[in-house]
């Protein structure tokens, strides 16, 4: 294969697949971003559950986290993908509605990815919560702050600094895990590469191109992480 044909395969417009790959990359970024927001929110709730003094809640969140940590992401994603439809239909049937509603693939992928993300994020949050020195908490309490004030004014602002490196790692994992959505035929980057490679029978070109785009996405994330960490460490770094 000569270079010219590679360029024409990856060209933009009707003849090449370059624009399709970029459209897929945009879906990948959206999928990762939405899953990040949902996963962070869910992760905070789970961390609350783990730190809660109420035993059953503790036990429940721990079980969930063990399940996610020991089960392949791929399996969780498929379970959610097929399971959500069933859940929706059962609810509809319970309400007496005959429904053939299908959960959109994007929503199913977001649900699966943020469930996975939240389990790991809750560990990071828990670690960050416990990393705030007790001396500070005692000092804040001694000055007459309520428990709520201690949490919002002392703990939370500092948790961010402790949690950032861990969350940044999880973001990288999440970004790469979005590729699993290709298997449920969501038109993200890898799926676009698959469609292109199967219709042209040139898989090497398209999978390498997809890999290169993922590499750009992770490299950009890496730079952003570096900047954020410098910002979060301001005033603390030596």
């Amino acid at each position: 294969m000569n270079n010219e044909s590679v360029f024409s395969l990856l060209a933009f417009g009707d003849t090449g697949w370059g624009d399709d790959l970029l459209a897929g990359a945009w879906i990948t970024v959206q999928l990762a971003a939405v899953s990040l927001v949902c996963g962070l929110a869910l992760g905070l709730l789970l961390a609350g559950g783990r730190l809660s003094p109420w035993r059953p809640l503790n036990w429940l969140t721990n079980t969930y986290i063990i399940f996610i940590r020991g089960t392949p992401e791929f399996l969780v994603l498929l379970l959610v993908f097929f399971g959500l439809d069933l859940v929706v239909q059962q609810i509809a049937a319970g309400l007496g509605i005959q429904s053939s509603f299908e959960v959109p693939k994007f929503a199913a992928a977001v649900a699966g990815l943020s469930l996975i993300f939240s389990a790991y994020a809750s560990e990071v949050f828990r670690g960050a919560y416990l990393a705030v020195p007790t001396g500070q908490i005692e000092a804040a309490t001694a000055t007459g702050m309520s428990a709520g004030q201690v949490f919002w004014r002392v703990r939370l602002p500092q948790m961010w600094r402790f949690a950032l490196p861990g969350l940044a790692n999880l973001w990288m994992v999440l970004l790469k895990d979005t590729s699993l959505a290709a298997v449920i035929a969501l038109d993200e980057l890898l799926r676009q590469a698959k469609v292109a490679s199967e219709s042209t029978l040139q898989p090497l070109v398209f999978y390498l191109a997809a890999g290169a785009i993922y590499l750009v996405l992770t490299a950009v994330s890496d730079i952003a992480r570096h900047r954020l960490e410098l910002g979060a460490r301001r005033g603390y770094a030596r």
């Binding site: 490679s197 898989p203 090497l204 997809a210 890999g211 993922y214 992770t218």
Partner: peptide, 23 residues
Amino acid sequence: IYVFRGTPLLVQLWVLYYGLGSM
């Protein structure tokens, strides 16, 4: 290290299986 940690495993699998395999 950078390339293998910066790309999804699924892409690596498909490059080696479908990509190289197509030769």
